[in-house]
Simulated scan of single mutants.
Amino acid sequence: MRLDLADLHLFLCIVDSGSITAGAARANLALASASERMRNMESVAGVALLERRSRGSVTTEAGEALAHHARLILRQQDILKGELQDFAVGARGTIHLYTNTAALTEFLPSRLAPWLADRPRLRIELKERTSADIVRAIASGLAEAGIVSDAISAEGLQLHPVAKDHLVLIVPQKHPLAHRNKIQLAEVLDQPFVGLSQGSALQDHIDDQARVAGSLLDYRIRMRAYEGVCEMVTHGIGIGILPQNIARRYKRRYAYRTLLLTDDWARRQLCLCFKNWKELSAPMQSLLIHLGADTGTF
């Protein structure tokens, strides 16, 4: 089967946009040209890749398989381009590092700064995702590496702990639970909550655990930043869940009580996550070693 890189790029544009028309525009092709290319691809493949509908197109099972491999091939092409560019300009382009919320806000900033300072032409693109999403992306070959919680199953991948990331419940000082030191999420499912904005990887993780426990959390308000959550809880608006280090930091400024969450999913460590060390690009290996990867174990 002969499909060139332009064909694969067009196919992914169509898949991601949901229609041949939008995909053609995204790929900077005329609709007629894009349609002809799709017919040729399906002819070469010998099977339908798209199911045409009145409101767009969706992939068939064969199309899903092609999309998966197309992403792998194009990602490898990007890695190749980056490494060749390194020889030309003395840089490695852009590293894409997937990270959960806690690592993004608490662990990475102080550690990335000196490493990047020594590499002035290098760029890092941080992609905030839930740990589950990061593990899926790495397992499927769509991401090189990431930072996740060890509370997630990562079968077939390597996890290297680099920091503790336990979650705690914070409550107003006069809250009926303020005398407690420990608690489980199931005990507070009926309480009003202060949460992080929708789209926060940490908040998505907490919501998933609430659903597993059989409930949806009742949010009185959602805040963009951890400090906003702390201020709202201090004023009695509701209770909240934060990483322990962050709760400890803001407690110097705000008056609330901290209760350790004893659920297994809340007793977390931050871990570097990747599939095969030898398949990582050189700059990614350098970054992970700087962040604490134990090279003696692989």
Rank of each mutant, 00 (worst) to 15 (best):
L3W: 11
L3G: 04
D4V: 07
D7T: 09
D7N: 12
F11M: 09
F11Y: 10
I14M: 07
V15F: 09
S17F: 03
S19W: 04
A25R: 12
A32V: 11
A32I: 07
S35W: 06
N40D: 12
E42A: 14
V44T: 13
A45T: 08
V47Q: 12
L49M: 13
L49W: 07
L50P: 01
R53T: 09
R53F: 07
R55T: 12
S57A: 15
V58T: 15
T60N: 05
T60V: 06
T60M: 05
G63Q: 03
H69E: 15
H69K: 08
R71I: 05
L72S: 05
I73R: 15
L74H: 04
Q76T: 07
I79K: 12
L80I: 08
L80G: 07
E83F: 04
D86I: 03
A88R: 09
V89W: 06
R92G: 12
R92F: 09
T94I: 13
H96T: 11
T99K: 01
N100L: 10
S110A: 15
P114R: 08
L116T: 06
A117E: 14
A117H: 11
D118R: 13
R119G: 06
R119I: 10
I124K: 01
E128C: 07
E128P: 15
R129S: 09
D133T: 08
D133I: 03
I134D: 00
V135L: 07
R136N: 13
A137K: 04
S140R: 13
S140Q: 13
G141D: 03
G141L: 05
G141V: 06
A145N: 02
A145S: 10
I147V: 14
V148F: 03
S149H: 04
D150K: 02
G156F: 03
Q158G: 00
P161M: 05
V162H: 01
A163I: 03
K164V: 08
K164Q: 11
H166Y: 12
H166I: 00
L167P: 01
I170R: 00
Q173G: 01
K174N: 14
H175W: 05
H179M: 08
R180P: 00
R180I: 01
K182D: 09
L185W: 00
A186G: 02
E187Q: 10
E187V: 01
E187F: 02
V188W: 00
Q191N: 03
S197A: 14
S197M: 11
S200A: 14
L202W: 01
D207L: 08
D208V: 08
A210I: 06
V212Q: 09
L216E: 10
Y219N: 00
Y219K: 04
R220Y: 06
R220H: 10
I221S: 11
R224A: 15
E231A: 15
H235Y: 15
G240S: 14
Q244E: 14
N245W: 07
A247D: 02
R248H: 09
R252E: 13
R253L: 12
Y254F: 15
Y254C: 04
Y256I: 01
R257L: 00
T258C: 03
T258V: 14
L259I: 05
L260E: 11
L260G: 01
T262L: 11
A266H: 03
A266G: 04
R268E: 10
Q269F: 02
N276L: 10
N276H: 14
W277V: 04
S281P: 06
P283F: 07
L287A: 03
L288D: 02
H290I: 03
H290F: 00
L291D: 00
T295D: 06
F298I: 11
